[in-house]
């Protein structure tokens, strides 16, 4: 077997275990794992712990990595479970205050008493171009940071990870679908306004 061919052949489980190299995982994927965790749990020390736990778990289960996904996807998959577990636990200790969200209502500030825009959305031109600019991602990240913690967590799980309503209700211990949707609606309006103010028409 030629060397070039060998490099492209998926590793058998035994080979994968033999090839497990957590130091290399840390070098290659450490920042990506850390960024993933930090976006969702916000506390740097917690995010660091999760990266460590993920790599340790990966080390213990390297024989289950069969090369069907990329190494990065495999590691992120492990990390995602750890993040969800962490959020479930911390939400149990400090439940979301649904009533407050409901009372404040999502229209507060954005519309006048007749239901018209208090401040109309402006023209964003061609926003697609922003996706190519690193500075845009910094602005989006800053805007997410400004959200109240519970809304930021909810938004990240919904839009970054694509969790559906039922799963969100379970993880975040929210009992009312309507409240959940109202909270998401408020969050999107706030993010929209923040992006407009800080990127599209500063």
């Amino acid at each position: 077997m030629g060397v070039g061919v060998g490099a492209l052949t998926p590793l058998s489980p035994g080979q994968a275990a033999a090839a497990a190299d957590p130091a290399a995982w840390l070098d290659v994927h450490g920042d990506a794992l850390y960024a993933y965790a930090l976006t969702r749990v916000r506390v740097p020390a917690v995010a660091e712990d999760m990266v460590q736990e993920t790599l340790l778990a990966a080390l213990g289960s390297a024989d289950r990595f069969r090369g069907e996904s990329t190494e990065r996807t495999w590691l992120i998959g492990i990390l995602k479970h750890k993040v969800l577990d962490h959020l479930r636990r911390s939400i149990r200790e400090q439940p979301l205050d649904e009533q407050v969200e409901e009372d404040t209502g999502h229209v507060a500030g954005y519309f006048d008493h007749t239901g018209h825009w208090a401040d109309q959305p402006g023209a964003w031109g061609d926003p697609e171009g922003a996706l190519q600019q690193e500075q845009f991602w910094n602005v989006l990240s800053d805007c997410m940071e400004r959200l109240p913690e519970r809304l930021r967590t909810l938004y990240a799980l919904r839009e970054l990870d694509g969790l559906e309503t039922e799963e969100l209700m379970r993880v975040l211990n929210i009992s009312s679908r309507n409240n959940l949707w109202v909270m998401l609606s408020r969050t999107r309006l706030q993010l929209r306004q923040c992006l407009e103010a800080n990127w599209f028409s500063p």
């Binding site: 960024a35 930090l38 976006t39 991602w137 910094n138 989006l140 990240s141 990240a156 839009e159 694509g162």
Partner: peptide, 16 residues
Amino acid sequence: AKSAGAGEAPIAGARL
């Protein structure tokens, strides 16, 4: 947000 979640975009200088 979806591309940020997929790790296609670097979210704000988060580095170890």
